[in-house]
Design a protein around this nucleic acid. Structure first.
Lengths: 135, 135
DNA sequence: CTGCAACTTCAAGTGCGCTTCAAGTCAAGG
DNA sequence: CCTTGACTTGAAGCGCACTTGAAGTTGCAG
């Protein structure tokens, strides 16, 4: 019964996730096995794509529950659309922060200030990284 | 005794962190009170800057322990420099992923595909977001 | 001087994302 | 047919980053 279906070990290997994580995701409603071979789950290869989406979203700061909601959502859900746009805006901010952080790290890696914290470049970074300057 | 020093509530307000988080950070060696007024911690205003750095680093994916190590590190620590550069490279990758994610979300927020997952744009995203295509 | 709101400590609890364990099932190779 | 090892479930455990609760102390407004 090798009709292009994958077992859990194969999906784990291709997705880079542990089998335990895949079962956990199933519990959470993020993925589902297409069927069973005896007790054993069998997966559609597309599951691997879906998992790539899951891990990306998770890394982007979504909780697993949010991701499940996303998957479950109808395109007619306008509240959802609003949430997506809000999330995108969050990401935008986050990206800017991370870029700053990256630059800071690169600088720190060649900086000679003893307490790194005293480096004026670091200070500058900290100041620009703060969205709301203190009142 | 208001010599420009802040109490924990003030630092909490300015940093956007809970007092309990500040005490926790102190335990972790991330910050320290300059002194005490009776039992009560008094903080140098610079602590707020330091906290901004902590939260940025934390948001960038450092654990609190790593951040403490960073603060403790001598600039002569070449292993640390290497780690910083590695972290910066990680961030670079992460930033690219997040940018992709942001674009996906924006698209999803106006997309009409019923199971969002079936949207070709989403699919395209998933494909580009995957660092190692399956063997 | 008194009262109380805000602080203090220490320990235990929480939420998330999994992992690990114990006990059992079973598909497939020899 | 029998073994074996990869799977199965459900429950408990873990690491991180805090939060909460209980019990006690104290600076400071009135």
């Amino acid at each position: 019964m090798d009709e292009g279906l994958l077992d859990i070990a194969e999906v784990a290997k291709r997705s880079g996730l542990a089998p335990s994580a895949l079962r956990f995701y199933e519990q959470k409603g993020l993925i589902s096995a297409t069927g069973r071979n005896g007790l054993r789950r069998t997966y559609d290869p597309a599951t691997v794509d879906r998992l790539a989406l899951v891990t990306s979203a998770r890394d982007a700061g979504f909780t697993l529950t949010e991701i499940a909601e996303l998957f479950a959502a109808k395109p007619t859900d306008s509240a959802l659309r609003a949430r997506l746009q809000a999330k995108a805006a969050d990401l935008e901010e986050r990206i800017a922060q991370l870029a700053l952080m990256r630059d800071s790290l690169l600088h720190a890696s060649v900086c000679l200030h003893d307490p790194l914290v005293d480096c004026p470049d670091f200070q500058r970074f900290v100041r620009s990284a703060r969205p709301q300057p203190p009142a």
